[in-house]
């Protein structure tokens, strides 16, 4: 009697999760496998008469000789590394600020959330306007009314890349801050009190209590921000289209161009697979790190 009750509950639970799992399977897991299948074929969207000949790993061989693809890969890695380091640093700073209690804390927290809530396309256009070569705010702040010295920031390979990094850090630091804040809130106050009684300075308290205690939260923020930074697309599409001279080209943008602008579904899919494998490796690595930390804390 009791067994059948459990069985009925399990059956009901499966029925409840069924629809969600079905959709995720069709539109997320199956496409991952399908991308791999496509990457082994030559498929040109505009030329259906060619069919879909199987070409083995030919596309991959081509990928590793494709200069622009390698450029996009290094760009993406530099972008990921520099944005997440800044975002975690600023995120920690912001979290420390909004964790303290003071009047208008709710308003400050809401203000910090604004960059996170803004559509990326909007923030891309906004920064593009700020960087504008003729009437952008940045030029005015740097050079005043001396218009002859105004620069076209987004036409310069180095500054265009930097500009995209700044725009991303501005938008995503608050998300890192929120995750770190959640970690800060789990630190019991008596730890600080005990430290104060023992005569620990503010810096010592930060080093010996705050930092070790928020480490798991920082790692979670690191994981989510890394995965998100690999997906950078909107900023590049709106601000630079990958230019000048591919200096801001990134993997997701390059893959998009190959598959949808040039119609190279087969070749473009190798980029899809490559991005997936890189992020999968990183995710597994991070989750192990987070996992062991959490485990050690419980022990």
């Amino acid at each position: 009697m009791k067994l059948s009750l459990i069985r009925r509950e399990r059956l009901f639970a499966s029925a409840l999760t069924g629809p969600a799992l079905f959709i995720v399977a069709v539109f997320a897991f199956y496409p991952i496998l399908f991308s791999f299948y496509l990457s082994l074929h030559r498929i040109v969207l505009g030329l259906p008469s060619l069919g879909q000949p199987f070409v083995g790993f030919e596309n991959y061989r081509e990928l590793f000789q494709d200069r622009i693809a390698l450029r996009s890969l290094t760009n993406t890695l530099i972008f990921v590394f520099s944005t997440i380091s800044c975002e975690l640093l600023f995120g920690l700073g912001i979290a420390l600020i909004i964790n303290r209690s003071f009047r208008a804390r709710g308003l400050v927290r809401a203000a910090v959330l604004v960059p996170w809530a803004i559509p990326t396309v909007v923030s891309s256009q906004m920064w593009r306007f700020i960087y504008n070569d003729k009437y952008g705010l940045l030029n005015f702040l740097l050079f005043g009314a001396a218009e002859s010295r105004y620069r076209a920031w987004l036409a310069d390979p180095f500054f265009a890349f930097l500009g995209i990094i700044v725009a991303d850090v501005w938008k995503a630091s608050s998300f890192a801050a929120l995750l770190i804040l959640a970690g800060l809130q789990t630190i019991p106050d008596d730890l600080y009190e005990a430290a104060r009684i023992d005569g620990a300075s503010a810096w010592q308290q930060f080093r010996r209590i705050t930092l070790p205690m928020v480490k798991p939260a920082i790692l979670v923020a690191l994981l989510f921000r890394t995965m998100d930074a690999f997906r950078v697309f909107d900023l590049v599409y709106v601000m630079t289209q990958g230019g000048p001279a591919d200096s801001t080209n990134v993997l997701q943008f390059y893959g998009y161009k190959k598959i949808f602008a040039e119609g190279l579904m087969g070749y473009g899919s190798t980029i899809s697979v490559l991005v997936f494998l890189i992020t999968l490796t990183l995710a597994v690595f991070y989750i192990r790190l987070v996992g062991t930390r959490l485990f050690r804390e419980q022990a």
């Binding site: 639970a13 496409p31 995965m227 980029i271 991005v275 992020t279």
Partner: peptide
Amino acid sequence: LRMRYKGVVMGALLAVSMFPQISIAGPVWR
């Protein structure tokens, strides 16, 4: 509810939230 493979399901969902869009874009389009 009591359910088998709970951890697997939660993990699979978490994984989907981290999928790079480009990895599924072509097939989803098709």
